Computed example of a mutant assay.
Amino acid sequence: MKNLSIHIIDRIQEHMKALMIDEVDWLSKEATVEKWEEKRPLSYGGSFLSLQLNTGFVFEFSYIASQGTQYCTCKAEDEGYNTLYNCCGEVCDWEVPMVIKNNGVNELEEEVFVFTGKQKELWL
């Protein structure tokens, strides 16, 4: 993974932390990245990184649009306001981390990990 940009590595780590999947087998010492491709997502749901491992697993890192939320209207005087993010992180629109894991052979064995908390929980 040393050839990945720092920005992409940070985003992978954000996803792994948010989705609490740091115990996934692809992190084992035996697994190595055979092929990777950075992508520029065109819209919500598009992956920004595809990793193919020597174990046969493929991981697609992406974001999806948060559901049932609204455009951020938070103000500095609002409870829980975070100046770093200009937001309270409660019900505002945001990009939700998602990872799709598959073995490249059987789509029925595909696993999808989607963050289910609030945006502010990623800021801790």
Score class of each variant (00 low, 15 high):
84 L>W: 01
52 Q>G: 11
1 M>G: 08
121 E>Y: 11
32 T>R: 07
106 N>C: 14
74 C>K: 04
100 I>Y: 08
9 I>R: 03
81 Y>P: 04
110 E>M: 07
32 T>Q: 05
103 N>A: 06
42 L>I: 15
56 G>E: 03
78 D>N: 09
89 G>Y: 03
56 G>S: 05
53 L>I: 02
48 F>S: 13
93 D>A: 07
83 T>E: 13
113 F>Y: 12
40 R>H: 12
23 E>A: 07
13 Q>C: 09
58 V>K: 11
111 E>L: 11
10 D>T: 00
39 K>Y: 14
51 L>Q: 06
33 V>Y: 00
67 Q>D: 10
59 F>Q: 10
20 M>C: 10
13 Q>E: 10
104 G>I: 06
68 G>M: 14
25 D>K: 00
94 W>Q: 08
117 G>H: 13
96 V>I: 13
50 S>V: 13
102 N>V: 02
122 L>C: 10
77 E>R: 07
105 V>A: 08
80 G>P: 10
38 E>V: 13
123 W>T: 09
42 L>H: 14
46 G>I: 12
71 Y>H: 05
86 N>Q: 12
123 W>L: 05
17 K>R: 10
17 K>L: 07
68 G>Y: 15
53 L>Q: 01
4 L>D: 05
30 E>A: 10
74 C>G: 09
4 L>S: 03
123 W>Q: 05
53 L>R: 01
62 S>M: 13
9 I>V: 02
72 C>N: 15
69 T>G: 12
99 V>M: 10
68 G>A: 13
43 S>M: 15
37 E>A: 15
69 T>C: 14
19 L>V: 02
55 T>Y: 04
44 Y>G: 14
70 Q>L: 12
32 T>A: 01
92 C>A: 08
6 I>K: 02
120 K>F: 14
102 N>A: 02
121 E>P: 08
2 K>I: 03
73 T>V: 12
6 I>P: 00
44 Y>T: 12
88 C>G: 04
1 M>F: 01
117 G>S: 10
86 N>C: 06
44 Y>S: 14
89 G>F: 06
75 K>F: 04
77 E>L: 11
77 E>Q: 14
99 V>G: 06
54 N>G: 09
69 T>Y: 11
118 K>C: 08
111 E>N: 08
25 D>V: 00
97 P>N: 15
83 T>W: 02
124 L>P: 03
105 V>I: 14
76 A>S: 11
16 M>E: 01
33 V>S: 00
57 F>V: 04
65 A>G: 09
24 V>A: 00
20 M>A: 13
118 K>M: 14
53 L>V: 02
79 E>P: 07
93 D>G: 05
7 H>C: 00
101 K>P: 01
3 N>M: 01
59 F>D: 03
120 K>A: 12
24 V>Y: 00
65 A>C: 08
32 T>F: 04
28 S>F: 00
54 N>T: 06
68 G>Q: 14
43 S>N: 15
24 V>H: 01
3 N>S: 06
61 F>D: 11
37 E>K: 15
100 I>E: 14
32 T>K: 09
124 L>R: 12
60 E>M: 11
88 C>K: 13
15 H>E: 02
86 N>E: 06
105 V>S: 09
3 N>W: 01
72 C>W: 04
84 L>V: 04
123 W>P: 07
109 E>P: 02
111 E>C: 04
89 G>D: 10
1 M>D: 05
72 C>G: 08
